[in-house]
Amino acid sequence: MIPSDHFVRMYNELFKMLEEKGHSHLQNYWRRIASLQKTILGPYIKKDGLKGMYDYWEHIRIEENCDANLEITDDFFEFRMNKCPSLSKALDNDAGAFEFYCDHCAGWVKPVVEDYGYHYSSDIISRTEPVCVMRIYKDKKKAKEYNQTHILPAKPY
C-alpha cells in the first residue's frame, strides 16, 4: 500500500514521467484528477458557495496538517499557505521534486471551481519555499485584478 502520506511523492514521480512524454500528458492527468476532485469538493460548493469552499479547505487544513490561514469575504475565499505539507514532502524526497510540482494544485482545483462559475487565482510565490496563496472569486474582473499582483501566477493550462 502506498501510504496516504506518500501519495505526494509517488505522483511527483508520475509528473516527471508524464512531462517527459510532453506537457499535454501532464495536463490531461490533472484534468482526470480534477474530475475526481469534483466528486469530493463539488458538493461543498454546490451547497454553500464560498462558505462551502471554506468548510472543505478547513477540513483539508486539518487532515493534511497544513500551516495555513483561511479567509472568506463577500468577494472571495482565500487559502493562504504558510507551510505547504505537499511541497515540503516533494522537497524532502530522495528522488527530488518535479520542477513544476506546485502547478498541479491549480491543475486539479481550477477546473472544479470554474464548473461552478467561480474564478481561480493563485500565486505560487516560490517553487522552492512551501508558501502560496489561492483565492477563488465570484467576479471574473476582480480575479483578474488580483492576478496582476502575483509574484508567480499559477497557469496550469
Binding site: 502506498i2 496516504s4 502520506d5 501519495f7 505526494v8 509517488m10 505522483y11 508520475l14 492527468y29 482526470r32 484528477i33 475526481l36 469530493i40 483539508i60 486539518i62 487532515e63 493534511e64 496538517n65
Partner: peptide
Amino acid sequence: TGEVHMDFHLATNET
C-alpha cells in the same frame, strides 16, 4: 505524524 488524509487512496486508485 499528525492527521492522515485518507482520500489520497482514492487518488491512488484513480491514478
